[in-house]
Design a protein around this nucleic acid. Structure first.
Lengths: 209, 209, 209, 209
DNA sequence: GATGAATGAGGCTTCATTCAT
DNA sequence: TATGAATGAAGCCTCATTCAT
């Protein structure tokens, strides 16, 4: 009687090992040996569960996305469908105070972004993830427009602009944090969102707790 | 009769070689051999002019910054000191149509950003460059405030918010371009800047030719 | 069902490879490739078992010391605790006819000595080994003094003087052998030891078979 | 009118540069660039004056030997031809207190010795130098024998035994100095010389000032 | 004589991946 | 499933030597 497969857990374990190392050393800098060690496993076993290093990266991206999406969903759920509050919550979730429960994940995502520059398959997965969140945002904006709360000729463009700002804040925060006066990221992002969406009610007031 | 030193040119040549390769393959992926080849030189010679690979990276960052700064300065010079036009020009220079005469430089800068996550000295140089542009922007905003054209309680925060957006657009454009409807980046960024600075006159109208 | 570890053997195998090459070409001259070849292994594998080249050197020193110590112990065991015979045996073991079953080891030890000049950790290990043999000799001398057979105000000084002579003979023998008339090394060393310890009985007569 | 040749001085300058670096880093560790720098010259010029690195080593050996020989000769000149005093002076010059005006030269000579293991031509030069000093010592011993002051069946063997002790003390002093109780080297060496030469008068009393 | 750039070989080391157990 | 030894390619860097000036 064969032992029950533990592949699922193992793959997650390994992906998390990569995330952990990659945050500090980048993708190329994360050696399989280190990843294995971080995951509490051995090199050989890793290659039993993954065809190669890139496959682990793809799995890690999924893991990062899923976890982050859970976060977002939770926050949005408390907004009762109010687009203004949702936008504010979305922003707060990303760049608000105490937003980054996991700064490793943030650094990691930037690393992944750079890796996407080089590798088509990584780029595709990266784009899918970005698409997912972009659509989330787009839907909120569209809802706001339908309600007459927001004004925008291209919800998708507006969504991507917000995404860009958030990603940009990640990058700047990770590399030149001193440029960002403490606690200004969320407020400024909301002001910018107002320029973009011209809401009938300010995002700043409607901040989530 | 010693031969005249050509170190200056060689270093530039090498730094550019790195930039060229790094844009496609990242920093770790840019082997000295490839860089040497791209520069039309030998590996040995590269190490004669640079202590190690990282020194080349630092030189490359300088080169990227200097070139970009020249670009910006040129654009701003045509604005006759009008803050509204200057902000518009600054945005156009970065994310406007045909802004990136050199998309390689853009990708490169993202790679450098990720490298800054890992290496303290790279991070420092990176921060210095960002600081430079941030100050440029801050001064423009302050001038606008003095004239009563802009409204902002923290010009530095506003500047870094704009910087973040621009950097973010770089990242998204490089990795998931399809998310950005064609030609919307500059317009959206300007709208966002309006939310941020509340100018008495729209940036969108005041675009540079 | 993991494969049983063979690290112990491999490390010894590699250390011996280094010893073999180092005797002819010195430490710097012993390339990892050659060492690997001498050990019948691959370069990569060597670095799997050793962190770097210097670690192999340290292991090689241990190996040389252990092997040599075995030799000495065996010889001394036949002396029935007679200090006069023990000193004679100690000398014969080092510079007597047919003493150097392994001339490679001798040359190697000189190489190691020079390497100790440059590297603190090598120096420390070197000193430990020398200490070990010096203590052996010191104990013999002290025993002789207690019995009234030897006369010396400083057994340690006498021991180190003998050690110096032996090491010196190694060096001269390896580099300018013709300076040493055949078969004189042991006799001369014993005469010198007599000047040093003033034994009641000559070392020369009490030579081991 | 051509400028007067300065090759002689340059060669010396370069040889001394090698000696300086080699004492700390060994022969292989002394890069031409470093040697050039230590000599206050450039790489290119060094190869103008020397065919290759080994030629510099040979020149350095000559320089070390000449300088040392001058030292010895000076000391011996004060002994008025008394073999007992001469032996004592010879020993003091090598291992006496304050003997090593130049510890660099000492370390260097050991390095050279190891190099002689590898290279035939270096070995030959090394042997010549050793021969020179050995002959000096042999002549003193023979003179003592003729005078009835010393007893030895093989002056050459005795000389080489003393040489070995001195070289050995160099090696031990340089690598495991703590083994040698302070100030014991000269005394012990003299006691050993007495065992070797059975002088009618003790070397220890007849020490040079 | 002198400079310093240039070359090309070779050295140590790292690493993803494979494989015997 | 799991281990960890083994491989081989590739990477960064050093260096003695040559050469144009």
């Amino acid at each position: 009687m064969p032992r029950p497969s533990n592949t699922r857990e193992r793959r997650l374990q390994i992906a998390r090992g990569l995330i952990q190392i990659m945050a500090d050393k980048g993708y190329d800098g994360a050696s399989m040996t280190e990843v294995a060690h971080a995951a509490g496993l051995t090199t050989g076993l890793i290659h039993y569960h993954f065809k190669n290093k890139r496959e682990i990266l793809l799995a890690a991206m999924q893991e990062l996305a899923v976890e982050h999406d859970g976060n977002i969903a939770e926050r949005l759920a408390q907004c009762l469908g109010d687009p203004v509050q949702e936008i504010a919550a979305f922003i707060d979730a990303h760049v608000g105070l105490g937003a980054h429960a996991n700064p490793r994940a943030l650094a990691c995502w930037l690393v992944v972004g750079t890796e996407a520059l080089k590798d088509a398959q990584v780029r595709e997965t990266y784009a899918q993830v970005m698409d997912h969140f972009n659509r989330r945002l787009t839907r909120i904006i569209e809802a706001g427009i339908r309600r007459g709360t927001f004004t925008s000729t291209s919800p998708r463009a507006a969504a991507s602009a917000l995404m860009a700002t958030i990603q940009g804040y990640y990058l700047v925060a990770a590399t030149a944090r001193h440029l960002i006066p403490d606690g200004t990221a969320a407020v400024c992002t909301k002001q910018m969102a107002e320029g973009l969406l011209k809401p009938t009610q300010s995002f700043v007031d409607g901040a989530t707790p």
